[in-house]
Amino acid sequence: MKSYGKYIVEVENLTKKFGDFVAVDNISFNVKKGEIFGFLGANGAGKTTAMKMLTGLLSPSSGNAIVAGWDVEKNPEKVKLNIGYMSQKFSLYDDLRVSENIRLYAGIYKIPGKEIKIKINTLLEELGMQDLRKKLVGDLPLGWKQKLAFAVAMVHDPPVVFLDEPTSGVDPITRRQFWEMIYKASADGTTLFVTTHYLDEAEYCTRTSIMVDGEIKALDTPENLKQQFEVDNMQDVFVKLARGL
């Protein structure tokens, strides 16, 4: 296990260019252990590209980023092993059973065979899904699927978890239950990196950053952001920023 300094994610002048197009323009920020870091921005603002660099999928054009103690450019494989990732679009295999999905990811993240069985049991117990272990994931309601996907992303107890629009399309109660899982993980010391289009969720974050045209235009606690922009909710902060006011 690597030891980290004060910050678990350190980003310094990170830039990504595709030809002439600057998708991510010189962004810098640090994330502390246990923080819930909101990563907001309009479509095409560069969120996805930045996420891809931080998860080791894309190498930066310049600048650097240390995630969970590893440099994303020099050791992308180490980064991948030490983070969890959940995306709204894909995470679980619909044609595998609940327990098979957990086993698969446990295997991918190199959890020893003996521990996997225990892991599956504790995980299902925590989710209250013991009766569903033999069910195909495709047959689960969306809310359950998302909870399971989150648990699976954390199966190897990573210090950092990236959540890409995790609550898209679920009902308001399930959405809140999901956030409670995020709080719990944060209280247990996991760092969470979250993107969302629900701006009330931006309020649940410890700190929130807002990207516009490849740059981070705002980064602070929701409280301070609202003060700074003299509005009373994050939706208005976002709209003000994106419209360039």
């Binding site: 479509n43 603002a45 629009e165 289009h197 701006l199 939706q235 709209v239 994106a242």
Partner: peptide
């Protein structure tokens, strides 16, 4: 408005 940002939604 699913999947589009807050500005476009407004």
């Amino acid at each position: 408005t699913t999947g589009i940002d807050a500005v476009s939604r407004v």
